[in-house]
Design a binder for these strands. Structure first.
Lengths: 259, 259
DNA sequence: ACCTGAACACCGTTCAAGT
DNA sequence: ACCTGAACACCGTTCAAGT
């Protein structure tokens, strides 16, 4: 066995001492607590070595538990990835929820959700990719049933949260679409935001992106989308660049984490 | 050594006999020819086992060459993935090029590019994901320099091809944007199409998508985007669903491959 | 009941020996 | 010069033995 395992282990030794192991009320809670501990470790590990280099072996090495115990929590590597996906989407929806309290018109609030999503991608690039990973056949086939149900649940929560912003626009009259089109418009938005963030993060050096100046490319794309559905006020009548800056302030606590 | 390797090997035996090994003019050509052969095998393999289950071991097993020889072509697994990415983007641009010959106004031609891209995702789901994979840090760090240059080259070709459709719109006056905005609009389009296809392919069972009826969701999203940039005629004045069907006929040869 | 780690199949990569 | 496959480190998963 190489010495790299020992190096990893030492590095995470601090963690072992600092973790909160406060009074689990019963056996089930103890297990849940340990699972959270393992997920936190997996999260650190992924940030450090990248999603592709996350291995069960490494998680075992940095945790104080044995292989068998890890496999009691996660039935396979894909199950661990799915669990990380659930964790990731939880953090993401936490950020998105904060958009609700932004003081602005409904289109600006919807913009704030996109900001939250973008910020999330910047704060947690590996976890952002992890969510996509969870959709791949290998994860869908191998992860445990419960885990997939959890994934589906957060997935639905986030979708409904996103819908609610279009609902607001519909209610205040700034967005004139049919009620049943909300689902379509909401999907279009997700797709646009998802694609934009994914490409900006992963293909920044590609010709199509590197040639763009530092113009706010996320805002540009979202504006096209919102203008396309005729959401008032349209971008030629309103300074959304300024809204973006206000939104940035609204999320200042999180932006600070970017260093 | 398990017997699965032998099963794989037998399965691909036919290939070994049918491959074109016609008269390489010199050593360099022989090597190039073998590389194409290996890529074709890797392509088949990926279609069969999925991108995540492609291994060097399997490629060795299904090919008539040894590990050492495979490693003479691809310096590491990531280099193989990058080579598959180049292969993939070549096929993709082949489809996109065909959009140029679609008889329609400039917005319809641009729509045909989106159709080509979508069709490509349906025809080659694994290769579609492969291109994204090539952008990940692990591939960018480990693939050979030449391979990354090849990737960059096709990447640029495709970007310029996409730009040309907006250029046409600008020239015939249907699209009123500044010349220097083409790059931005082109990126927005790529991002939207990319996100839409990726999600439709990978997250079809997620709540946000499964609730949508069989409406043409790709067309819906692209229309929002094109309307957002004010590309004439806008979707409320024109039957783009009909255009879509015409485009489908234009690509009939490829559509047939979907079975 | 739950935990442990040895054991095994598979995978990525290298390189001494062969042609 | 190019090819081969044995060898090795690492990884995913299981399960007999221990508590």
């Amino acid at each position: 066995m190489g010495c790299w395992l020992n190096r990893l282990r030492e590095k995470y030794q601090r963690h072992c001492d600092s973790v909160d192991r406060s009074s689990p009320r019963n056996k089930a809670e103890k297990i849940l607590q340990r699972e959270q501990e393992l997920l936190q470790l997996a999260h650190q590990l992924v940030d450090e070595v990248g999603l592709n280099n996350l291995t069960m072996e490494k998680l075992v090495a940095v945790s104080p538990y044995s292989k068998g115990t890890i496999y009691n929590h996660f039935c396979c590597k894909e199950d661990l990835l799915a669990a990380l996906g659930v964790h990731s989407m939880g953090l993401c929806s936490e950020l998105m929820l904060k958009a609700q309290s932004f003081a602005g018109n409904s289109r600006e609030q919807a913009l704030a959700v996109h900001y939250a999503y973008h910020l999330y991608g910047l704060l947690e690039p590996a976890l952002y990719m992890c969510v996509l990973n969870c959709k791949t056949p290998s994860v869908q086939e191998k992860a445990s049933k419960q885990r997939l149900e959890q994934l589906e649940k957060v997935d639905k929560q986030i979708a409904q949260l996103c819908d609610s912003f279009f609902q607001k626009g519909l209610e205040d009259g700034s967005l004139r679409i049919a009620q049943q089109d909300i689902a379509y418009v909401s999907f279009a938005n997700w797709a646009c935001s998802f694609g934009t963030n994914l490409l900006l993060q992963n293909a920044a050096e590609s010709f199509a992106i590197s040639r763009l100046t530092e113009t706010n490319r996320v805002l540009f794309n979202i504006n096209l989308m919102f203008d396309g559905m005729g959401w008032q006020p349209v971008s030629t009548d309103y300074d959304y660049q300024q809204s973006w800056q206000k939104i940035e302030l609204h999320f200042a606590d999180y932006v600070a984490m970017l260093n």
